[in-house]
Computed example of a mutant assay.
Amino acid sequence: MFIDKITKLTFGAALALSVAVPQTASAKELAFAVFIPAASPTIREVYQPWVDWFNEQTEGTDTSIKLFAGGTLGRNPLTQADLVANGVADLTLTVPSYTPGVYPDYDIFELPGYASNTAEGSTAVKEMYEEGLLRGYEDYYMVAVYSSDAYMLHSKPPIESFEDIKDKKFRVAGQIQTAVIDALGGVAQNMSALEMAENIDRGLIDGAMTDASVAKTFRVADVATNHYDANLGILIFAIIMNKEVYEELPQEAKDALAKSRQFIIDRQIASYSAAVAANKEAWASEDGSTLVVPSEADQAKIAEAVKPVVEMVGAEASDGLIDAYSAKLEDIRSR
């Protein structure tokens, strides 16, 4: 009898714990890993506002997001998806083009002469992803996908025409940018964004191929004061989430994530477009800086020079994807 009482008490305590533990364990702080500097305008104006908004939407569900910027959970931009796959982070910022051959459909967005700004690029990639046109990231939950502004050439020596690109060394990131610079007659130099300004300042390279916001954020414009405003492609960013983690979230959190894609794109377009416009205006008016918009003749030369790159990317991407991209941009511009 005494043993029966002990057994009943033990079972009762275990049952109480089994009810109580899941309530505590269900509290989930999702780690969001971002490799870009914590002081970046994108952190301040896009990612942190989104995190704050999400946490307001999910208040009372014991689910929240915490931002880890500046590579706190992993600095290498090439291995960000691994952080999610390995459970180091729950969400992370990735750049498809940083891992050549893994996401070939996303390479089309880096082609010169297509999307000319953040709004066109972000809207196109989001809608094409939602329409099921883009392969890649099937193993993850796609929180958001969006773009940078159009790449430009930022250089220490002046570039006033297409011919001035020849033999100049430009920092690039990834195989598509490399192919584009090579096609334009320049010399591609792969290195991290953190190395750009120092290498230009030391004369090891002549400039960098990046958009106007990145050029300002990473101090490229401080040492490369000549800007050739050619439409040389855009960079795609994707915020991805571990699928198993996503499936375990309460419905309120899933609903907030469903709305997050548009929230992030709206913030990206507003903040990025404003930064790019302000930078270009300053470069056009400040003493010691130049802003050159290629002539129609130069634009035609650029388009002709990069045709082999377009063919190479098109061959690796899904059939008809570049045509679908062109059609999507025409649709966006007509709205």
Rank of each mutant, 00 (worst) to 15 (best):
Ile3Glu: 12
Asp4Met: 10
Ile6Trp: 11
Lys8Asp: 15
Thr10Arg: 14
Phe11Ala: 15
Ala13Thr: 14
Ala14Val: 13
Leu17Gly: 11
Val19Thr: 07
Ala20Met: 14
Ala20Arg: 07
Val21Asp: 00
Val21Leu: 02
Pro22Glu: 04
Thr24Glu: 12
Ala27Trp: 07
Ala27Tyr: 13
Ala33Pro: 09
Ala38Phe: 04
Pro41Thr: 11
Ile43His: 03
Ile43Leu: 11
Tyr47Pro: 03
Gln48Ser: 03
Val51Gln: 07
Asp52Glu: 15
Trp53Cys: 02
Phe54Met: 08
Phe54Leu: 11
Phe54Gly: 06
Glu56Met: 13
Asp62His: 13
Leu67His: 06
Phe68Thr: 03
Gly70Gln: 05
Gly70Met: 07
Gly74Pro: 06
Leu78Glu: 13
Ala81Ser: 09
Leu83Glu: 06
Tyr98Cys: 04
Val102His: 01
Val102Glu: 07
Val102Cys: 02
Pro104Trp: 12
Pro104Gln: 11
Leu111Ser: 08
Pro112Tyr: 14
Tyr114Cys: 06
Tyr114Ser: 04
Ala115Gly: 08
Thr118Pro: 01
Thr118Trp: 02
Thr118Met: 05
Thr118Ala: 12
Glu120Cys: 11
Gly121Ala: 12
Gly121His: 05
Gly121Leu: 04
Met128Phe: 00
Tyr129Asn: 14
Tyr129Phe: 12
Glu130Phe: 07
Glu131Gly: 04
Gly132Gln: 04
Leu134Ala: 09
Arg135Val: 04
Val143Ser: 06
Val145Leu: 01
Ser147Asn: 13
Ser148Ile: 01
Ala150Asp: 00
Ala150Gly: 09
Tyr151Asp: 06
His154Asp: 12
Pro157Phe: 07
Pro157His: 08
Asp164Gln: 06
Gly174Thr: 02
Ile181Asp: 01
Asp182Glu: 11
Asp182Ser: 15
Ala183Glu: 02
Ala183His: 04
Leu184Pro: 05
Gly185Phe: 05
Gly186Ser: 09
Val187Cys: 05
Val187Gln: 13
Ser192Val: 14
Ala193Leu: 07
Glu195Gln: 14
Glu198Met: 06
Asp201Pro: 03
Ile205Phe: 02
Asp206Val: 15
Asp206Ile: 15
Thr210Ser: 10
Val214Gln: 10
Ala215Gly: 15
Phe218Glu: 09
Phe218Asn: 01
Arg219Ser: 12
Ala221Cys: 09
Thr225Lys: 15
Asp229Ile: 08
Gly233Phe: 05
Leu235Val: 13
Met241Leu: 13
Lys243Thr: 07
Glu244Tyr: 06
Glu244Val: 03
Tyr246Met: 04
Glu247Trp: 00
Glu252Ile: 09
Gln262Val: 08
Phe263Arg: 13
Ile265Phe: 01
Ile265Arg: 04
Ser271Thr: 14
Ser273Ile: 02
Ala277Ile: 00
Ala277Cys: 08
Ala278Asp: 14
Lys280Phe: 07
Lys280Arg: 08
Lys280Trp: 00
Glu281His: 03
Ala284Gln: 10
Ala284Arg: 06
Gly288Asn: 09
Leu291Thr: 04
Val293Ser: 13
Val293Arg: 10
Pro294Tyr: 03
Pro294Thr: 10
Ser295Ile: 13
Asp298Gly: 07
Lys301Gly: 09
Val306Thr: 11
Met312Ala: 15
Gly314Met: 09
Asp319Pro: 12
Asp319Phe: 09
Ile322Lys: 02
Ser326Asp: 13
Ala327His: 07
Leu329Arg: 11
Asp331Ser: 14
Asp331Met: 10
Ser334Arg: 15
